[in-house]
Amino acid sequence: MNPYHKTTGIIIKVRSYGEANKHLTVYTKAYGKIHAVAKGAKKIKSRFGSTLELFTETKLFFYKQAHAELYLLTQSQIATHFKNISKDVKKYTYASAVSDFINTFVPFGEKSHSLYELFIQTLYKLDTEKHEEKVFSMFMVKFLAQVGFRIALDCCTSCGSDLKQKIRMSVSPKHGGVVCEECSDGISTVEVFNNTLKLMDFLHRKTFDTLSKIMIGEQSHMEIEKVVEHFLEYNFELRLKSLKVMESVNSYGK
């Protein structure tokens, strides 16, 4: 097998490794999420320069033996640099949260063209648009579907009975959707406004370009975050670190 590989990827995590090396987590087009090592990348005259900065889309050239676990980076070139993300704390925290979703819930080595497109589009919109909350909410809803969960709204996902449309509805991560009043007793559910669920369904079907035409209230953003977070944490048994930091950055000193 050819040990040389070439692909494009987005840098989602950078760690120091040894004296002057960088250990990277990259979400690539051709190989999904991978670990890679860039030797000497921390040195001041490193040929990698700023091509391995967080959230940069980079053209990568690797070397990897058939049974080796790590990809060894030989060359890199910037494909897309999101300059506003590194110049705005708010954009930076949202981009970190988006990367955290990919880093935490996407398994290694599984490529997905649609997930890559969602990731790069989200970063592009965060970089260029003013309303980062809207972009992030749409990303979360679409990401949930990408990893295999779309919240069922038609009937009770526990007993199958027709649902009475109430102002507040109970969503069960265990059953994968809305549950009726009787079934919600004694199981872990998230209570949200019915309108939030309808909005999530709308966001799932639409593209990022429609975001400029709609308004989303703060309450809805919070509820979407709550539902998505519960769903992912229940099913993967993993926790996101970035959402709490995002909150503390926004509320610091207030």
């Binding site: 709490k244 930091v245 950055v249």
Partner: peptide
């Protein structure tokens, strides 16, 4: 500040 590591 590194949200990916939970440092705020």
């Amino acid at each position: 500040i590194s949200p990916l590591d939970g440092i705020g």
